[in-house]
Nucleic acid binder design. Structure first.
Length: 278
DNA sequence: AAGAGCCTCAACCGCGCTAAC
DNA sequence: GGTTAGCGCGGTTGAGGCTCT
């Protein structure tokens, strides 16, 4: 049937957002909460399409977003989860609540892919020089070439992650920095949370039942404001129909291993739920 | 110093899906 | 049941910054 592009309308502004536009959008969301994006341009007077507003909010303005360099722990998680889930950036982002799917996707495409390609090449050339090695030795060298292609490798994928340092607790919201720099009184600096977040439960409840209208819970891009990790509900049905890992093994393995997980318990339980859903 | 090439990442595009009508 | 509107996702683009020569 073909839907007309939402951003083709005359008078719709494109390109980088200005600080003024950011402030307008943030103040509107501060008051009404995210969602009902269609009405945002109308109600704010922003010359942006709804999609652009949503994107700006979820990828840049949303409180709790950590920006800057990825830690080795985050990097490891991305590598593991990408191998496990494929390019399901939103799903991967749900395990890194402080990072956006766009951020993770960019980091993967610009850094990790190259890094992994390089290490794969290095290991391949090394393994070519070691053709006479025992099979046991080879197994430890060739882990990238069959990455996530077997239950054994999936458990190996997660091994390092399980032992990794606990997830960072120092969340400096980008918005706070932004607003501190730009407007002194825009938000209360003593509050770690955005005003709407203080009512997040009630808003999300209403949002998931009302705005989304499906009662299946809020989508991850809007629910990752805090530590609460989103679980992709119906959406995973749409997007995760290929590259399904051998999950029953993962479940078993996770159950056996979580006793040693320490600070990663929460993340592991989310993986379990993901496994159940897939 | 300056031009070329490379890199990064914010933003856009197109598509799939669901809900509403 | 068909059509339309809205949302979210993954892939892609391109402007601007950075590095190299």
């Amino acid at each position: 049937m073909g839907r007309p592009p939402c951003c083709d309308k005359i008078g719709i502004k494109k390109g980088p957002w200005t600080p003024e536009e950011d402030i307008i959008l943030v103040s509107y969301i501060q008051e009404h909460g995210p969602g009902n994006w269609r009405s945002v341009p109308t109600n704010t007077g922003l010359l942006r399409c709804s999609k652009s507003c949503r994107l700006r909010w979820t990828n840049y303005l949303r409180p709790g977003i950590k920006r800057g360099n990825f830690t080795p722990h985050e990097e490891g998680m991305i590598i593991h989860l990408q191998a496990l889930l494929g390019n399901k950036w939103a799903s991967i982002a749900s395990y890194l609540p402080q990072r956006t799917d766009n951020d993770i996707k960019n980091y993967w495409n610009t850094h990790l892919k190259k890094k992994l390609n390089k290490s794969e090449t290095d290991e391949r050339s090394r393994s070519e020089n070691m053709v006479l090695q025992t099979s046991a030795t080879r197994n430890t060298l060739n882990h990238r070439s069959t990455y996530a292609s077997s239950t054994e490798n999936i458990s190996r994928l997660l091994e390092g992650w399980m032992r990794a340092s606990p997830k960072s607790s120092t969340t400096t919201t980008f918005l706070e920095h932004k607003m501190q720099n730009r407007t002194n009184n825009f938000i209360d600096h003593h509050n770690d949370q955005f005003p709407y977040e203080q009512h997040q439960g009630s808003w999300e409840e209403g949002h998931s039942k009302g705005i989304n209208g499906d009662g299946q819970g809020i989508k991850n891009s809007e629910s990752n404001n805090g530590d609460d990790v989103h679980h992709e509900d119906g959406d995973d049905d749409h997007h995760h129909h290929n590259a399904t890992p051998p999950l029953t093994f993962i479940e078993k393995w996770l159950l056996e291993e979580t006793s040693t997980a320490g600070g990663q318990m929460e993340e592991m339980s989310h993986l379990m739920e993901l496994s159940n859903m897939l």
